[in-house]
């Protein structure tokens, strides 16, 4: 770790030189907002005796790699070694990100902060953090979209995802989310100080972590061993893919195509969204048929005409190289009917 100081306001940050391609970086100070240059090969500045609540540096625009650095606070438990997890925090609001960081510091040996979904996904894929705390409405790619992509990747099955939801009007619209998008848990923003530690503790504990973070989790109930890792705090059935060892994943294994690049992944996501919209529209205007399918009929037979119409539209809108990657419409239909059956308690 190397301590660097903002040349404008002297706020200090700790950076890990191993995380950067180049020794020279330009980062933006979170405190004063000014950019400053850092040379990681230079001797470091004197470490502060009383660190002034350093916040993670945001990336300067021309240096996308620089945002990989989100140092843990120098005064936090990271230094004492109580934490053992790599934790990703993705939130567009730096104040909320800082609040989450201080809340989870006790569990972390390393905290990474980003403000957008694309970077969050890239970090998850490259670093496989134990915990990813994602705002639902992240810029560039929504948190729930990141979550869905992560959940489809077997190699990332060890990543526990917590979605952060905003609340419009607590008293009026408070409700459990109807879908967690495969996340292991969710938390409402105003509950971060009270509940996040407990949730992280439970997720880390249930994940058979190599070390025990209980010491660092004052509110953690240790007796939760019977609860599966996927059991969220809400009373909704969790999607099967959230289980630590997915049972013979009947959910759409990705076909033999090579893993998509970033742009491809966005096109795939767009195709999936169109498929979900088509199915949602079909369902909206054919409630009788949907009811029949939910009560046990074969949805592909019952909705054959509508699916044919949907397939035609899908073909018109989605490029051939994307539309053949997976059975988008049928997957969306299956998910929709499964959800409805779960809601109906079947």
């Amino acid at each position: 770790m190397k301590v660097v100081a903002c040349t404008h306001c002297d706020t200090r940050y700790r950076l890990d030189p191993a995380k950067f391609d180049k020794p020279r970086l330009r980062i933006r100070c979170k405190k004063c907002g000014e950019p400053f240059d850092v040379d990681l090969s230079e001797p470091e500045v004197e470490a502060p005796t009383a660190p002034p609540q350093p916040e993670p540096p945001a990336p300067a625009a021309p240096q996308p790699n620089a945002e990989a650095a989100a140092p843990a606070p120098s005064s936090a438990t990271d230094d004492t070694g109580t934490g053992d997890a790599i934790i990703l925090i993705a939130h567009a609001n730096p104040d909320v990100a800082a609040e989450i960081q201080s809340t989870v510091a006790a569990f972390a040996k390393e905290v990474h902060i980003t403000d957008n979904g694309v970077d969050a996904l890239m970090y998850i894929e490259t670093h496989k953090p134990q915990i990813a705390i994602l705002d639902v409405a992240l810029p560039k790619m929504f948190g729930f979209e990141v979550c869905e992509i992560v959940r489809r990747d077997e190699e990332l099955s060890g990543v526990r995802v917590v979605l952060v939801a905003a609340i419009y009007d607590e008293s009026r619209y408070k409700r459990p989310p109807s879908s967690l998008y495969g996340a292991d848990d969710y938390i409402e923003k105003h509950r971060i100080p009270d509940e996040l530690q407990e949730k992280i503790s439970r997720l880390l504990g249930a994940k058979a972590a190599p070390t025990e973070p209980q010491e660092a989790a004052p509110t953690a109930p240790p007796a939760d061993t019977t609860a599966p890792a996927a059991s969220p705090a809400v009373s909704e059935p969790a999607p099967p893919s959230t289980a630590p060892a997915p049972p013979a994943a009947e959910q759409t294994p990705e076909p033999a195509s090579p893993p998509p690049a970033d742009g491809d992944e966005q096109r795939l996501e767009r195709a999936r969204r169109l498929a979900r919209t088509i199915i949602s529209d079909i369902a909206l205007y054919n409630t009788d048929k949907i009811d029949e399918a939910v009560s046990g009929g074969d949805p592909e037979v019952i909705l054959a005409d509508e699916l044919a119409e949907g397939a035609q539209l899908f073909t018109e809108r989605i490029a051939p190289e994307v539309r053949d990657v997976e059975p988008f419409l049928l997957n969306a239909l299956r998910d929709y009917i499964d959800n409805k059956r779960r809601e109906a308690g079947q």
Partner: peptide, 9 residues
Amino acid sequence: LPNAVPVQE
């Protein structure tokens, strides 16, 4: 509606 998504989202 009870399943309304928060406005911020």
